[in-house]
Design a protein around this nucleic acid. Structure first.
Length: 610
RNA sequence: GGGGGAGUAGCUCAACGGAUAGAGCAGCGGUUUUCUAAACCGUUGGUUGCGGGUUCGAUUCCCGCCUUCCCUGCCA
């Protein structure tokens, strides 16, 4: 039998096929195949229970019928066995799966060691995994909007999450066959430029003289500007006028603005490089400033937008919280009273451009949780507008994340007070990793350059992993001790397991994939547990994809590394028997492939030595 | 007022309506002349905030409370 990369999906499809031939089942039957508790098997199908409830039928009877049909299916090799408590029965010789019907109607599947060996032989490395996974999206065009920082501000700790989460999401989708475009939608066109230009002119600052690290000075000018505006309303009007001048193409203001943007981008590039973030396009808000008139026109034509208090807004009365007759009305504002565009208008123009120019099937926005209302309004507006104009509608996803909190449990602020600069955060992480490595290393002969590269990978990896390994919608407290704890479910632990595998292969004089000829069937509990964990790599990918939450992949990698570590402690690889040695070498290489593939998808560097 | 998040072991967190709610850290007890001990093995620890409901089955879904953080039209 030919095996799919994702055996669970394959079983799912086969169960559906089996159900098609049965009168008792209908088209809406979903097998719900998922990984099982190892006590029960490798996979379980729970769908019969839900279906039986709806059909008011006996679930065990339905399960029996379904399993009979499945076994009779061409191209499926399985045998029904009696459930026993404790260890499930392995399949009889030459049969791929043993199947049990258990409890109220669970269907449990246990793969034979032959299936394990075949799967591990078919999917040997990152390329094979990718090939196996690529059928998931089959070239679907997905635009991912990240990290999308605002121009004229230094990157601080608040910029960590969009970069880390966005990059992981992009890599995972790409790996699963999507045609991903990373679109860095920088905030280069906001009200803040009015304030900045006002302050720059007032202070007579020469931006050209600031060198390539002028951001702190620009930040200082912005703070000064906002302070002045607060003191004197007349200054606020000047700023507003500077902004309008800029938007109307005034030469002097445009030149100042261009300098600010160029200066900012230069600094940002360095951080992107360090974080492994590679935008495909950088089309900021300014790119859309000549495209917003069409938005006003079309939305007004369609009767979607209307004037309200001098602004142009869209009401979504059908959604309670946005309705106009609320105590506090909450429209979607797309043009300000002063006629200027805002992020409502540019975001609408951006959706249209992404559909018309990039032919986007899907757009994913990576931003913080507080923007949920904005995106809900944006998506509702796009839906109505595209329906009116009969434009092809993309799938729109808002992937939002929680806030990074300070030790006091409050959000780390950007404008008030001292926020931690991203570069110094990373530097400190690397310094701590370096110190840790000096104490713990098993490779004292490393050169200084190698040590530095390892510290960079471990330090930055630890910070990334700490951010990715918990559910993204959670807030989390930023604490050095926590972020740089190199124990348990952390990047250094995973990197270390990889390094251990490289070490054993090095000692054997083998490249990954070599030395596996003549391997015998897996036998020990730890070998089998590891092999079964490897089989679940596609499941972890699927879970990470289904709601774009990378922490599922982290959890899987940690479990995989744990299964490997248990195996590595219990089963010696360098044994005399060539068949046993070969199969253990195979497990090492395959674990390495899954582990490194997973870490790469998370944007974390892997290491050969530590 | 409206909306969203969180509430699970001492701490930090998992758990796509499924089987006896799991990890890590901390604690306790073991393991190293043997392939990287940043490791492994064992163990202690729970009324899943409270009260109802839905059903074969609820941490998960629904209703009502409690605590807490955040958002709530012209910044993005």
């Amino acid at each position: 039998m030919a095996l799919s990369f994702d055996l669970g999906r394959q079983l799912d499809a086969q169960l559906r096929q089996a159900a098609e031939g049965l009168a008792a089942f209908s088209n809406d039957f979903a097998p719900e195949v998922r990984p099982a508790d190892p006590r029960f098997g490798d996979f379980q199908a729970n769908g019969v229970l839900a279906f039986a409830k709806k059909a008011k039928a006996n679930p065990r009877q339905l399960a029996t019928q379904l399993v009979d049909a499945l076994i009779a299916l061409d191209g499926f090799s399985g045998a029904l066995v009696q459930p026993k408590k404790g260890e499930p029965t392995p399949p009889p010789n030459g049969i791929d799966y043993s199947i049990e019907i258990a409890g109220p109607g669970f269907i449990n599947f246990r793969a034979s060691t032959g299936v394990l060996a075949q799967w591990l032989g078919d999917f040997r490395d990152e390329d094979a995994f990718k090939k196996g996974a690529s059928s998931r999206f089959e070239g679907r065009k997905i635009i991912i909007d990240y990290p999308s920082p605002n121009t004229a501000k230094q990157m601080h700790i608040g910029h960590l999450r969009p970069m880390v989460i966005g990059e992981a999401v992009a890599r995972i989708l790409e790996f699963c066959g999507a045609n991903v475009i990373r679109d860095n939608h920088i905030g280069d066109w906001g009200t803040n430029f009015g304030t900045l230009i006002m302050a720059i002119k007032r202070e007579g600052v020469d931006l050209g003289a600031l060198g390539d690290n002028g951001l702190p000075e620009i930040e200082r000018l912005y703070k000064l500007g906002t302070a002045l505006e607060k003191e004197d309303p007349a200054v606020r009007d000047i700023s507003r006028n500077e902004l309008v001048q800029l938007q109307q193409g005034d030469a002097e203001n445009t030149a100042i603005w261009q300098q600010i943007v160029a200066l900012t981008n230069l600094v940002f590039e360095k951080t992107y490089a360090r974080m492994g973030v590679t935008p495909d396009v950088t089309l900021g808000e300014s790119f859309y400033c000549d495209k917003v008139d069409r938005i006003y026109t079309e939305l007004t034509e369609c009767g979607i937008a209307e004037e309200s208090d001098g602004a142009l807004v869209v009401w979504h009365d059908e959604v309670k919280k946005f309705a106009r007759d609320n105590e506090r009305p909450y429209p979607f504002n797309i043009r300000k009273q002063d006629g200027a565009s805002n992020y409502g208008s540019t975001d609408l123009a951006t959706v249209l451009y992404r559909v018309e120019h990039f032919k986007a099937d899907e757009i994913v926005y990576i931003t913080g949780g507080p923007q949920q209302d904005h995106f809900e309004q944006l998506f509702l507006t796009v839906d109505k507008w595209f329906t009116c104009k009969d434009y092809s509608k993309p799938q729109l996803e808002h992937v939002w994340f929680g806030t990074i909190l300070g030790e006091d449990g409050k959000a780390i602020r950007t404008r008030s007070g001292e926020s931690i600069q991203l570069a110094s955060l990373l530097d400190e992480a690397v310094a701590r990793a370096s110190k840790m490595a000096a104490e713990k290393t098993k490779s004292p002969d490393l050169t200084d350059e190698e040590k530095a590269a390892i510290a960079e990978a471990v330090g930055v990896g630890a910070v990334r992993y700490a951010d990715l390994s918990q559910n993204r919608t959670q807030d989390y407290v930023f604490a050095w001790d926590k972020l740089l704890a190199f124990e348990g479910n952390t990047a250094p632990y995973l990197q270390m397991q990889g390094a251990r595998i490289h070490s054993i292969l090095r000692k054997l004089g083998l490249q990954p994939g070599e030395g596996e000829e003549g391997a015998s069937a897996l036998e020990t509990d730890t070998e089998l547990a590891l092999a079964r964990k490897l089989l679940n790599f596609p499941v972890a990918l699927e879970m990470a994809i289904s709601d774009l939450r990378p922490h599922h992949l982290c959890t899987y990698l940690f479990e995989l590394a744990g299964a490997f570590s248990s195996f590595f402690s219990a089963d010696h690889v360098m044994v005399d028997e060539p068949d046993i040695k070969a199969r253990r070498v195979m497990l090492c290489a395959r674990t390495l492939a899954a582990l490194e593939t997973g870490l790469h998808l998370l944007g974390i560097q892997t290491l050969q030595r530590m």
